[in-house]
Design a binder for these strands. Structure first.
Lengths: 336, 336
DNA sequence: AGAATTTACGCAAGCGCTTGCGAAATTTAA
DNA sequence: TTAAATTTCGCAAGCGCTTGCGTAAATTCT
């Protein structure tokens, strides 16, 4: 059996309440009794039962981070950053991976609804929001969305401005003399998808170019789809001279397919990929990428969640962050 | 406020105990009362408070997976596999990342000690085991180690046979005509390190070669160290013609350094890397790798943990699995 | 010095659930 | 029909902790 508060109280010859207050550094305990209690607790390696504590205090100091995709290094970076923020604020993170399955998301949502965590941060994920919306109706369910657009702007969220990111990328490619730019994005995230093509179209128009809908490809955000879309594209009528890929995994697949086909980057095809991380950095040639502000995404979202938990947030908030375009070889024209 | 058991009991006009038994499918409730209760609970979207439940039943149906390194795709694969096993058995996983910091590991260990989880699986990680050992003394602390050798064989664990893996790799490289094979491993995991060099040495001897201690390099298991060790090596006296790298991240760094130096794989240096996953698969040329049996690692470790939790394990168990050598271009000699 | 504050601690209820036990109701056996 | 066995359910204690409130002791102020 575990050692409990009651045991410590008996040993220190005080009431349980006093032990509780002493160990939690709450006022109302004399300095010397406090010291005595702490000493005894330490000596016996006392660990408060967090279940009991959570039940009594209605607070667990744990938050759930619900990840749509664990294979994305960008997401992992956000998580790592969140971990730091959590530790600094005395919270523990419990990481949940949904693999983009709504069912799993629902199941993890019960962590919130069953009081096991004080709040949840959702990173990425499909649009489907009924369950989220329903959960968010209860004021006890503190929810922050990261990089996930909802139909209704009911959620406190932190977003990357994909539109602006793609806009920059298009501008850069046009500058380099590429004129047939294909946009390869993910189909699952409809609203975000719209953002991306909005940025794409705006950039083309602003630079005086025509828009060709056939150069916009919506595919699943995984590696294989990135690979296959290239095969499909080179069989098509219009062969682009540049690609903008808006997810990490599709970028990998796309580059693989290009190389496999015996083509060269950037000579045959320029590529702007997504995510400045270990995965894309391994690629040869060095890849021009749109880079998410991972630390800022983490900081804002944790901050928002903390405010929600502490009821310090008056209105629902949305923060939009801008991705950075990191220019490397893969998008530099040899004619330039 | 949340809706509770008591509320349901009142609505169904039965005792709380009856509701509890009905909802948990325990005997002692008539079929129709059970149905009535379930219906009411569903209608009101009742979610049992897991803290209270855990406290009363002394069981949370959650396990902690404590990850030493989140940047390693191999580890991520193990986690994903564990998730499946957990779901199948009605457990929820809470993922904790230590980043190889012992302090974090200790902190996460309190999840176990404070009854928040029924057991913990440690994936990788440094040797330092005092805290683990101490924790494991309590029969309530169910612990399984994966890919982590402990000084004392006190832990139930699932291991990859690095020795045999490296042995195979050396044999393959010798077959290909490479004679100066360098071993690049991680310094943090001392015992595992010994295993690797044991396999390395045994293979050389068995094939009638001399051992050169200067070709064995113990470095930190990260990318930068993999990069730097190459720079160091080519400045040295003996220039190897082949590398065996025994961690994913060092493999990446090593390959980068080789390419950066203007050398070619496998013509200048053959490379056998570690981990058959998205990271190493992106590398050009296709990498020969030692591949961990990730699914088996996950299955065995979860199985062990379940047995520990259910007190079904008589003796402490150790399972050793063999890595596979996947041969690709990076280790094929042009003279062959 | 006594009265008025302040400080230190204990009491006890309660967080929401599970579970052993006993009573009442129902079914089966005789 | 009555006794015995079985089923169905409620009572109440208890899991280990927090916290509001009350009281006794220590401190401060006239």
């Amino acid at each position: 059996m575990q050692i409990t508060l009651k045991d410590i109280a008996r040993m220190a010859d005080v009431a349980e309440s006093t032990v509780s207050r002493a160990l939690n550094n709450k006022p109302g305990v004399g300095e010397d009794t406090k010291l005595k209690i702490i000493k005894i607790a330490k000596k016996h390696n006392y660990r408060p039962n967090q279940l009991a504590r959570g039940l009594a205090a209605n607070k667990t100091n744990m938050i759930a981070v619900i990840l749509s995709e664990m294979d994305s290094p960008g997401n992992i970076e956000i998580v790592k950053s969140l971990e730091k923020a959590a530790e600094k604020n005395g919270y523990q993170i419990i990481l949940c991976n949904t693999n983009n399955q709504t069912e799993k998301e629902k199941s993890y949502l019960t962590l919130l609804e069953s009081n096991q965590v004080d709040g949840a941060i959702f990173i990425g994920g499909k649009l489907v929001e009924g369950h989220l919306l329903r959960a968010s109706f209860s004021p006890d369910n503190n929810i922050v969305l990261v990089n996930r657009l909802a139909e209704e702007n009911f959620f406190t969220s932190v977003l990357t401005d994909y539109s602006q990111g793609v806009y920059k990328a298009v501008g850069h490619l046009l500058d380099q003399g590429f004129e047939n730019i294909a946009l390869v994005g993910g189909e699952d995230y409809n609203l975000i998808e719209e953002e991306k093509s909005a940025g794409y179209k705006a950039a083309l128009i602003d630079h005086g170019y025509q828009i060709n809908e056939d150069l916009i490809f919506s595919i699943k955000a995984d590696r294989k789809s990135g690979y296959n879309v290239f095969l499909e594209i080179i069989e098509g009528d219009i062969i682009p001279d540049a690609f903008i890929s808006t997810s990490e995994l599709t970028t990998i697949g796309l580059v693989e397919a290009i190389k496999m086909g015996g083509y060269f980057i950037p000579d045959d095809f320029a590529v702007v990929g997504y995510g400045d991380n270990i995965l894309t950095s391994v690629i040869d040639p060095p890849l021009t990428v749109l880079s998410e502000p991972v630390d800022a995404l983490a900081d804002y979202s944790f901050d928002f969640l903390l405010k929600l938990i502490n009821k310090k947030m008056k209105d629902q908030q949305i923060k939009v962050l801008t991705p950075e375009l990191i220019i490397r070889e893969s998008s530099i024209s040899k004619y330039n």
